[in-house]
Amino acid sequence: MTSVGSGGTATIPGIRAEAPDAATSNLDLDHGQLRAMFELMLLARALDERTWLLNRAGRVSFAISGQGHEGAQAGLGYAFDTSKDWLHPYYRDLTLVLHWGMTPRDVMLMNLSRKGDPNSGGRQMPGHYGSRRLRIVSSSSPVATQIAQAPGIALASKLRGEDVVTLTCVGEGGTSEGDFHEGLNWASIHRLPVVFCVQNNHYAISVPMEKQMAVRHVAERAAAYNMPGVQVDGTDALAVYRAAREAVARARRGDGPTLLETVVYRFTPHSSDDDDRSYRSREEVEEWKARDPLIVTRQRLQALGALTDEQEAEMQSRVKASVDDATDFALAAPLPDPEEAVTHVYAG
């Protein structure tokens, strides 16, 4: 685990680490926005947990989780203009796609692969979100391929003179792929408006950081592409927001991409198909759960006077109603029509 990841501020040559206490200063979010950000995190967590339950109940055949990543994603998301910016997510980005406009119903239709699933009509795996309307591009099962594609989206925006920034995310595991190098190299050569966010949860399925890379921090790699590398505590949504806002501003100015590393921890196994007890201790998981982004962000908001217990109780009841509604709606939806299996192979 990295020093920043365990709550401190690291000084790393060539990169800047955000100090958590700096996060609450110089914020341009009002209390209402802060509460909305927190409610987004609560919703993502509840939807994720419900999906996991449905998997264990045999209703969802595959689940892949973003539990533990909500703070990083909420902070990131709020730095973007979701009415025009593009998102090329990875499979843990439930919080981000909800922020970009996907609804809990949309997500549940995908998880249960029902007719009317706006992501893919039951063709794609859960977690592989996609919506042309919302400018969300479906990610791939081979990891990091989106890192090569996001500069292409940004190239299109730049050539057309549009004020659009593309956000793409990947786990630290994906940074070992050639795609990561090729994508960052491209974006930096052409100063493309991309924010690359590595959500570092310390494990590539079972393989720990030190067996994945010889550097201590992913953000160090930015130096090789002559772009800023920023590492931030991903359990603290406000710290992430502050760092992401700078990266987005840089991209909008035409100064090019940023590599942002959010240090997080995933609370579930990699997916519903593996058992994490074989590669990490329960003590380690519990230690990180004490720094759950929901706890950290709640404390930040309370310290700012932006959140009362009553307000949180109202949020929780809205979230529960929304997740119940999405579940019921998707479970009642029919399966895709059989002919859907063979349509859309070619656009013609």
């Binding site: 090329h88 090569a148 292409g152 190239l155």
Partner: peptide
């Protein structure tokens, strides 16, 4: 419009896929 690329076939096609999805 005529872009000399790095020697990076995966990157070239990856960028082209992204650009094509975005309307180029």
């Amino acid at each position: 419009r005529v872009i000399d690329t790095p020697i990076a076939e995966l990157g070239i096609v990856g960028v082209a896929v992204g650009a094509a999805m975005a309307g180029l």
